[in-house]
Design a protein around this nucleic acid. Sequence first.
DNA 1: AATACGTGGCA
DNA 2: TTGCCAAGTAT
Length: 355
Amino acid sequence: MTADCFAENLLKWYDQHGRHDLPWHHNRTAYRVWVSEIMLQQTQVATVIPYYQAFMVRFPDVQSLAEAPTDDVLSHWSGLGYYARARNLQKAARTVMEDFGGTFPAAQEELETLTGIGRSTAAAIVAQAYNKRAAILDGNVKRVLARYHAVPGWPGQASVQKQLWVHAEAHTPNERVRDYTQGIMDLGALVCTRTRPACEDCPLKKGCTAYARGEATLYPGSKPKKTKPEKTTWMVILEDRDGRILLERRPPSGIWGGLWSLPELDPAYGADELQDACERSLGVDCTEPELIDGFRHTFSHYHLHIQPARLNVTRQNTVKDDAHQKWLHRHEALALGLPAPIRTLLTSPEQVSLL
DNA sequence: AATACGTGGCA
DNA sequence: TTGCCAAGTAT
């Protein structure tokens, strides 16, 4: 334990002010902790909670997750984002069943071999589920440590991250690792916040270098700003006489991988070429295409200009697939992996159909 | 090492 | 309206 009582002060604060009643705090099995950690990657607690609850009802253990249809897993993830997490989650569940005899590995080293589990997530599972010593370094911890030690630079930079890992390891105590781990995340989320940190309420202010300098908000260093690339694409709204809209399954990797969306066409096509392109690449027979408004959707790394076009389909080779149909109806437009502006164009689940 | 991967909240 | 970013990992 370091002489400045970092962990002790943090634990004392955690007992009084920390979060002790989140859904994954109850019945803390490795499986439940694992699912929560994956959902919480780059995603805020408030967003995760309802997804976590529903997920646990449908997939209460590793076996049920491993045996489920992937569509079922994806649909429970739909709206949460970063869908590779869901695909990796199930892949890892199947690995646990096949290679680990259905028992979740308890060693950080072994956990890291499972896809979707990196160093920090493996450590979080070890600490949360088994109360075994392991250092985590998520966004909250990075912020706390960057301020406490006045570590300059942007944590996305490998050299900066490396220093933060050293500090994370050094502060992690041998006792009460579970509470410590939850506590330092809670501190980052509730006190040592990105903007307007509540330094006066912080149990670590005494040893905090940035606080001593009155420079808490200068840390961690901000991401170097780059001009976001702009991308343009076509999302085609194909509607038949019954008002049903065509969807297609997206490739397993890439944006909205494995989900259903409006057909996406090569942006190189001009508006005048859309009809031909649809008939050729989607195998449908369209009448006059009519361009709807284009709009822009912003992702974290680029601006996506989406140019939806409406086309009337005169002939539709509908392949009935009850399982998929049911899936779409149950989860409505949210399940489609569409950016919000397009969702509004889908009037009701009953109008959604597959080709 | 740098980039791709979502969504919603907030200043 | 726009930019930033939140319990990161895979490639």
